[in-house]
């Protein structure tokens, strides 16, 4: 046992030396810790803020939609409970005027005209929210070889990796589990959108690339999409990059998990039911067993 203790002490030293070394490499690239944000939908209690989702959609529509699709979200979802809940009529009009129309066969069963251009029709409520590109090839051709990913599940497809000492790792994990922390995706998105800075002196940024503190590797092909005042909010929220980033990240969190509100609400009822039943069963069991002693 004594050996084991000294072994683990040695490992502690070795590990901290190692994390120390990687930390040094990171600071060279101006790494900053991705900070957890106070999302309205955070933890086991949180729910989406409808006004925020509406603003977030506005940011998506006016900025991100120029390059990114949202193909797993349907226009009708924008009017459904638990989301931005725009009036259905407004969404119908939005769909009809959405610039990226729906490819469709004509009556002869042809998909394209003589010149090869696809036949298209305006979107309906039941159609997906398409981006500007028909496929990845077209997207790369338009974006200097970079691929702007579809944003439908991006909030679930990204997370935050924490470098922590192994000995505190289990406690942090337990803390996250008890809080119901699942917002690594939006935390990352917010950090990404607000993470554009001047590169440190020792870093040369590639042609057509931008420096970003949150992006792995710190250089990405997406130019800073947001700037103060570029979008006019209707509800008096300050038109800052910080707010845009926050709102669009919340919107993308909803896009990736449209049933979050309902899921948690059902969850509370289920937890209450299970807790009460467990307690009742426990006392029932005690009564049954008490006859034995």
């Amino acid at each position: 046992m004594k050996n084991l203790i000294s072994l683990s002490a040695a490992s502690l030293l070795a590990l901290s030396a190692l994390t120390g070394a990687s930390g040094a490499a990171e600071t060279a690239a101006a790494h900053h810790e991705i900070v957890r944000q106070p999302w309205s939908f955070a933890g086991f209690k949180g729910q989406f803020d409808r006004a925020q989702l509406q603003r977030g959609f506005q940011v998506y529509k006016e900025v991100c939609a120029a390059c990114h699709g949202l193909k797993r979200v349907y226009f009708r979802n924008l009017a459904e409970p638990g989301g931005p809940v725009f009036p259905e009529e407004a969404v119908r009009e939005l769909a009809a005027s959405w610039p990226n129309q729906i490819p469709e066969m004509n009556d002869q069963g042809e998909i394209a005209g003589k010149g090869g251009e696809l036949f298209k029709r305006p979107a309906k409520l039941s159609d997906p929210i398409l981006g500007p590109y028909l496929n990845d090839r077209q997207a790369r051709a338009a974006q200097n070889g970079a691929l702007p990913p579809d944003l439908s599940v991006i909030a679930k497809a990204r997370g935050v990796h924490r470098e922590v000492h192994w000995a505190i790792h289990p406690f942090l994990m337990l803390g996250d589990i008890l809080q119901g922390y699942q917002e690594g995706g939006p935390d990352y998105l917010y950090a990404l959108l607000t993470g554009y800075t001047e590169p440190p002196a020792d870093v040369t940024v590639g042609e057509g690339m931008s420096f970003n503190t949150a992006f792995p590797g710190h250089q990405l092909a997406m130019p800073p999409p947001l700037s103060d005042g570029s979008i006019t909010y209707q509800d008096g929220t300050k038109p800052t990059v910080d707010n845009y980033a926050r709102d669009v990240s919340a919107f993308l969190a909803w896009a990736a998990d449209p049933s979050l509100d309902q899921r948690k609400r059902i969850g509370w009822v289920v937890m209450l039911y299970l807790l009460v039943t467990t307690v009742l069963l426990y006392f029932g069991k005690r009564r049954i067993w008490s006859k034995l002693h």
Partner: peptide, 25 residues
């Protein structure tokens, strides 16, 4: 039922905690 409390906690509040974000790509 005590086990179901744990189970439901993950199903309703942490459904993706045990998975990997890369699997949403």
């Amino acid at each position: 039922f005590a086990f179901l409390i744990l189970f439901a906690w993950f199903v309703f509040f942490l459904p993706d905690y045990l998975g990997h974000p890369d699997n949403y790509t």
